[in-house]
């Protein structure tokens, strides 16, 4: 399996774990919630960079005439929805920030419109993330299988003996 696929999977698992932590700010605390969200946005950018060829290819194919990529088109639209929703989460989160923005010297007034949007978009992100995982489930399963298969088959035992001055390996 390629090194890039392994990197992608590890990054995706880390991002998903961070996403699960972010979805529970009451347990993690607001400071962790906000700083982790900023770190997550960086990993999302790396996620885009690692999947850039797919994004570029799909953008071309979706907008080309006469294509029949129904499943891929749904996947593409879903990814855009997830991206836009992520921006909405980040923006509304910044606007209601209680830790990051004050520590950077910005004081924003309490705005309940942004708070409502933040809650709505985070709830929506659960749905979109579930669909995103489902759409890429085959890739996830096959990559995990390849990693574990590699682990099982990796220890190749090379037995070498020397008979009459010749090295023989089995």
């Amino acid at each position: 399996m390629s090194k890039q696929n392994r990197t992608k999977l590890l990054l995706d698992i880390s991002t998903f774990t961070a996403f699960l932590i972010l979805m529970d700010p009451r347990s993690s605390g607001i400071a962790v919630h906000e700083w982790l969200a900023i770190a997550l946005s960086a990993t999302v950018i790396v996620h885009f960079l690692l999947n850039w060829s797919w994004i570029a290819e799909m953008t071309k194919r979706v907008f080309s005439k006469g294509n029949t990529l129904n499943g891929s088109r749904v996947n593409y639209i879903l990814n855009w929805a997830l991206f836009i929703n992520g921006i909405l989460i980040m923006l509304s989160g910044i606007m209601i920030s209680q830790s990051v923005m004050p520590s950077l010297g910005f004081s924003l007034p309490e705005n309940f419109t942004w708070r409502g949007l933040h809650e709505f978009s985070t709830n929506l992100s659960m749905l979109l993330m579930g669909l995103h995982v489902a759409m890429h489930w085959n890739w996830i399963v096959s990559t995990v299988k390849l990693i574990f298969r590699g682990k099982v088959m990796q220890p190749v035992v090379v037995v070498g003996v020397t008979i009459n001055g010749k090295d023989i390996q089995a």
């Binding site: 774990t17 932590i21 979805m23 009451r26 347990s27 605390g29 962790v32 489902a134």
Partner: peptide
């Protein structure tokens, strides 16, 4: 609203709850 204090004891349960929701959707 969320309070600033963390309650790390409940974090695994919260994460598991969210994981279950996502798993149901998927």
């Amino acid at each position: 609203e969320e309070r600033d204090g963390a309650n790390l004891l409940f974090l695994p349960f919260g994460m598991f709850q969210n994981l279950v929701i996502i798993a149901i959707i998927a």
